[in-house]
Design a protein around this nucleic acid. Sequence first.
DNA 1: CTTTTTATATACCGAATGGTATATAAAATA
DNA 2: TATTTTATATACCATTCGGTATATAAAAAG
Lengths: 194, 194
Amino acid sequence: MENEEKIDNKKAILRNALNLFSKKQYEAVGIQEVVDLSGITKPTLYYHFGNKIGLFEGVIREYGKNLIERLSDIESHNEDLTGSLKRVAEIYFDLIRENSNFAKMFLNFNLIPEDSEIRVIAFGFYMEAFSYVEDIFKKEENKNGNMKNRSKIYCTTFMGMIFTYMSMIFNGFVEISDKLIFDAVRQFLYGIYS
Amino acid sequence: MENEEKIDNKKAILRNALNLFSKKQYEAVGIQEVVDLSGITKPTLYYHFGNKIGLFEGVIREYGKNLIERLSDIESHNEDLTGSLKRVAEIYFDLIRENSNFAKMFLNFNLIPEDSEIRVIAFGFYMEAFSYVEDIFKKEENKNGNMKNRSKIYCTTFMGMIFTYMSMIFNGFVEISDKLIFDAVRQFLYGIYS
DNA sequence: CTTTTTATATACCGAATGGTATATAAAATA
DNA sequence: TATTTTATATACCATTCGGTATATAAAAAG
């Protein structure tokens, strides 16, 4: 049981930190808050994570694994552009269902101020997730001449649209559904193919 | 000259506060930083703005006026949907050119955490700006049957796309041009009319 | 059984935080 | 000219910040 307790402490810290990081900006989250919620003391947190940035890094590692795995898996399915983009939309909408706190946190990553301590880590993770979607467009470049060198801008536009839909879901404007995914991808593809 | 100096102090505080608020999150900006940059002391700032929230409010009032005025002016031109939306895009892209710091700050407003002190103020301003665009879609509802009750979702999608383009501009992915405005609006309208 | 490693708490650190009591000097008002 | 208002600074407040030196207790390794 002692072993369980130790693991639980670390997991509890990660869970409460995610909860706070999803509700406030990084700088507004106090270490004391995290340890109070977790029922431990500061040295325990610093033992496990070193410093505040390490805690943030730990949260991303713990809860971001799944997203990266799913995104990196799209390529192997070898679907067409429409199919792959639908899968991307599905993965992000699933993320809201399965871990809405991490989804909220992630949604903030592309707007983290340039001189924030966590900019490199957060933006790094964001760009990694971004890169798998960019790969989808790059693959299409080879097939479709008039998309040449527009992977980045198409990818950003598409992800921007997905993030807009995610915001709408969080604000209660729409509900997640297969139709929503279909609409999102269709709306985007009409825009670029016309 | 003394009178000028007094006015300058207040203006200097606003300018430096905007600069910091555009580069960091609200909680990460220290009052001391603002006063140091402005070459004054804390009581002077507190004399003019009361508290930190008051300073934030002052910045929005000072630099947000222009945006609201322009947006509220669209209605009076009585253009069609395409024309009005182009004007919205134009206003936001102009904002980047004329006051990129405020544009950056504004871009963060829709993602401000729920329990942030400034949530009400920032979100209030955001929704005011939002409402003028929503009005454009509401007017269209009366003319176009299949848009019924979709003003909010269309407006959010359109603004999400505009914000995505703004992010791209800040990230150096694209440059502002008339073509960009045209593309943005066209891409959106293809999506909803098809 | 002893030693080392792991995981925890008590009690503290200096620095920075937002904010203010008080004094003062200049300007506007009477 | 005397008084009030406006705008400023010095010097301080309690609190919180991220982080740590030290002690300790349990578990693992030798």
